[in-house]
C-alpha cells in the first residue's frame, strides 16, 4: 500500500512537469502584461521539435533546447502582433494555437510510428539516488525522477527569486502593472515584454518536449490534449506566483495519474468491481479546472488579482 502511494506520487510529479513548465512560462508573459493564449500551440511545436531532434541527434540536451527555441520562435509571432502592432491579445494568442498545432500535426503526421532510441531514453529516465529513493512514501517521488523534473522545480525556484528578489523582477512587475509608469522610470517596456513573452514560449516548448521525450514517449497527433489551456488556468490558480505554480501543476499531475490508475484498477464496493469508463475519467481534469477556478475566485482577496495591465495594449504616445 505504502509502495503504491509512493509510486502514485512519483507519477503525479512526472505528469505535472509539462504543465509546470508551461505555467511558469505563462506567468512570466502575464507578469509583463501579455495574456498569451498560444501556450497549447507552442507546447505542440515544442513536443514535435523535441522528438525530432531527439531521434536524430540522440542528445537530450539538444532536444530540450531546440524544443524551447521553437516554442520561443512561436511566441515571437505573438509578441510582434501584440506588442509592436497592438493587435488584440486574445485573438492573436488563439490564432497562434490553431496555427501552431495545425503545423505540428501536419509536419508530425509521418512520425507517428517512430520511437526514441533506447540509448536516448536511458539518458533521460529517472535517476536513482541510492538510499534516499528507498524512503517509503516520498522516496520515489522526490529522489527517483528524471532530470527534467528536477529542472522544472529548479526553474520555479529561480523564477521566484528572479521575480521577488531582483531588480529585473521588480521592473517586470511594474511593466505588467503600469507600463507608462515603468516607461517614465526608464524601464524599456517593449524589450521587457519581448523578452518575457519569449521566455514564456521557451518554457512552453520545453514543457511540450517533456511529453514526447519522457512521458508518452513518442509523437502522437494533438499530443498535448488541452494541457496548454489547463496551464493558462493554472496561472490564475497560482495567483501569478511561481511557488504556487508548483503545487497547482503537481495537483493536476496527480489528477491525471489518478485517471490512469482508475482505468486499470476497478473500484470495489461490497465485493463487486466497478470500472469507471475511460472517457468519463478523461474528462475529469477539464471539469476540475473549471471547479478550481470557481473556488479560487470565491476566496478572492484584494492582492490576488491579475497584473493591472494584463491584456491591454500599451500605447507609448497615450502616456
Amino acid at each position: 500500500m505504502m509502495n503504491d502511494i509512493g509510486l502514485f506520487l512519483q507519477t503525479a510529479i512526472i505528469m505535472g512537469t509539462p504543465m509546470l513548465y508551461a505555467t511558469l512560462g505563462e506567468i512570466l508573459a502575464e507578469r509583463s502584461g501579455s495574456l498569451n493564449l498560444g501556450v497549447e500551440g507552442m507546447m505542440m511545436t515544442g513536443a514535435l521539435a523535441g522528438f525530432l531532434v531527439g531521434t536524430t541527434t540522440n542528445s537530450p540536451l539538444l532536444a530540450v533546447l531546440c524544443a524551447g527555441l521553437v516554442g520561443a520562435m512561436g511566441s515571437m509571432i505573438f509578441a510582434v502582433l501584440t506588442v509592436s502592432l497592438k493587435a488584440n491579445q486574445l485573438v492573436a494568442g488563439f490564432v497562434l494555437t490553431i496555427f501552431l498545432s495545425g503545423l505540428a500535426n501536419l509536419i508530425g503526421s509521418g512520425y507517428g510510428n517512430s520511437t526514441l532510441p533506447k540509448t536516448f531514453t536511458s539518458k533521460i529516465s529517472a535517476i536513482h539516488i541510492p538510499g534516499l529513493s528507498e524512503i517509503p512514501l516520498l522516496g520515489p517521488a522526490i529522489f527517483e525522477q528524471s532530470i527534467l523534473v528536477y529542472l522544472g522545480i529548479l526553474t520555479a525556484v529561480v523564477l521566484w527569486l528572479y521575480m521577488n528578489k531582483t531588480r529585473f523582477g521588480l521592473s517586470l512587475r511594474v511593466v505588467g502593472e503600469n507600463p507608462s509608469f515603468a516607461d517614465n522610470a526608464g524601464i524599456p517596456v517593449t524589450l521587457y515584454k519581448y523578452v518575457h513573452i519569449g521566455a514564456g514560449g521557451f518554457l512552453a516548448g520545453v514543457g511540450g518536449s517533456c511529453l514526447t521525450l519522457l512521458i508518452v514517449p513518442r509523437w502522437m497527433e494533438s499530443i498535448t490534449a488541452g494541457m496548454g489551456w489547463i496551464s493558462i488556468a493554472l496561472v490564475i490558480f497560482a495567483l501569478w506566483s511561481p511557488a504556487r505554480a508548483v503545487f497547482g501543476a503537481y495537483f493536476f499531475g496527480a489528477l491525471r495519474g489518478l485517471v490512469f490508475k482508475l482505468q486499470s484498477a476497478p473500484i470495489t464496493i461490497s465485493g463487486k468491481a466497478f470500472y469507471i469508463p475511460a472517457q468519463i475519467l478523461d474528462l475529469l481534469p477539464y471539469l476540475m479546472t473549471i471547479l478550481v477556478l470557481v473556488l479560487i475566485t470565491l476566496g478572492k482577496r484584494k492582492e490576488n488579482r491579475p497584473p493591472l495591465w494584463l491584456c491591454r495594449p500599451y500605447f507609448r504616445e497615450d502616456r
Binding site: 489551456w229 468519463i280 474528462l283 477539464y286 477556478l293
Partner: peptide
C-alpha cells in the same frame, strides 16, 4: 475562453 475550451474537451470525451 478557458471555460468554453474545457467544456469542449468534456463534451468530446462524453
Amino acid at each position: 475562453i478557458i471555460v468554453t475550451i474545457m467544456l469542449n474537451y468534456m463534451v468530446i470525451n462524453f
